[in-house]
Simulated scan of single mutants.
Amino acid sequence: MGEDFRQLITRHQLRGIRAGGLVILVTLHIGSALPGLLGGLGEYRYPWIPLAAYGLLTLILGGSVVLGLDGRPWPRGWVPCALAGTFVASVATTSQVPPDHYFVSSFHWSYSLAGWFTVVLLGHRGPLVSGAFLGAHLAVTVALLLTVEVPSRSVGASMALSALSAGCFQMTIAAGAKLLLDSSAAIGQALRAQERVRTRIAVARQIQTDQRRRYAELNATVLPLLTGLASGSLDPEDDEVRHACALEAARLRRLFAESDCTFDPLVHEMRACIDVAERNGTTVQLAVRGDPLELPLPLRRALLDPVIAALAAAGQTARVTVVRGGDQVRVGVVVDALRDRLPEPKANGIRVRTVHAEDRLLVEAACRITARPELSDRPEPPWPPAWPSWSPAGRRSRT
């Protein structure tokens, strides 16, 4: 996200810098270079050369306007070709300028104009790159001047002042453009930090909401049970009280498992409940069929609640099955107990089936999935879970 912000900011900044440079370049090209060209046609030795050079610069300017206003990087090969064309046009025009008009006259319009082409094409590369091209251009121009005529000290000083003032101003613009583009990194970093803060605030609020909801659920079920045990109104030797404690312990363990990072949340939460039953002396077998699915949390709770209630009432053995195939998810348990007080499903579409056979009870919760959820990218927890089993019959087997 932060990188996208940086790219977007850089693109907008580059678009503004190029737009400003192109406005200056178009203004000078039409308002300064064209009058200088037309006014000096009689002074040039071969007037067609400056005219052809001006036409070439016009084509380069038009291409730069079309390619540069969207803020995207220049097409590959455009900058070298445009700079080469600018250099050739400037040198060709300079070769036709009278020696006493170098740098100081409007007849020598190509020198300053070539510098602004450099700013537009290389300004995003910084002052060093732009200065290298401007320095090479200045050196070639001075060489052309010296091959024709060596100016006097006063004229040379005037020429040097004019050339350096134009070049320094153009390099200053290039340096400012580079600094502005470099600021996009700091802006992107600030936006990333702001996004992280917002994410942390949203996560903290969600965690706080979940914690309040969980505490409300615990207050409704666990707190009365603990209060009764503490006050003595509930007898720990009573089978009903022990069953209620086992059920709430399984629900608490499932509640803790809901926040774990796991590849298969449904099976992971089911294993947490199985661990509670094994600690109570029940031997549990778990069978899993089908690919993992990331079901919504309310749906997982509704599927596991009836199974957890039956598992908490198990005596010596229990067999848990999780089957996922087609468009259905089924969670069932077979226990050696006769309990028929099971919680009602808390989600629409959950079907609970109970079957009594001799001394065993089958409880199955099933739901139909209209859209198959995507697999989670969370890693699968190790088997067995991290918590140990302390009960004598705490061995777990899988089939």
Rank of each mutant, 00 (worst) to 15 (best):
L51C: 07
I201A: 13
K346A: 07
R125K: 13
D377Y: 03
F133S: 05
I60R: 04
S165M: 15
E258T: 06
V79Q: 07
A277E: 03
A277K: 01
E374P: 01
V320Y: 04
D305K: 00
V119I: 10
V120N: 10
P298L: 11
S397W: 15
A347P: 01
G281I: 13
L252C: 08
D377P: 14
G63N: 12
E217C: 06
R153I: 15
Y44S: 06
G176P: 07
T86F: 09
G115D: 11
D336Y: 02
G326Q: 11
R213V: 02
D4E: 13
C168Y: 05
A82V: 03
A92P: 14
S259K: 06
E240P: 02
A160M: 09
P306A: 04
T209Q: 15
N219F: 15
D239M: 15
L225T: 13
P384N: 06
N348R: 14
S95A: 07
P388L: 04
L113Y: 00
L67I: 09
T58L: 10
A287M: 07
L121E: 02
G156W: 00
R289W: 12
L191C: 06
V307K: 00
L304V: 07
L252W: 04
R253F: 05
A337T: 04
L295N: 10
G85Q: 03
G55D: 08
V91A: 11
I350C: 00
R368E: 03
V322R: 09
L8P: 01
I9A: 12
R289L: 15
R372D: 06
G131V: 13
N280A: 12
Q328A: 13
F263S: 15
S95Q: 04
F87V: 13
P80Y: 02
L161N: 01
V222W: 01
A347C: 05
T227E: 10
L138Q: 05
A277P: 02
L180R: 07
Y102M: 08
G20K: 11
A160R: 12
M171I: 15
R300L: 01
G315V: 06
V329E: 01
P99L: 09
G131P: 02
L293V: 10
G325E: 13
A92S: 07
A160E: 01
E380Y: 09
A52C: 08
R205V: 11
L37G: 11
A136K: 09
V140G: 12
S90V: 05
L59H: 02
K346T: 10
V307F: 03
Q206D: 10
L69K: 04
A371D: 14
T321P: 00
A309C: 12
W116L: 15
L25A: 00
S376T: 06
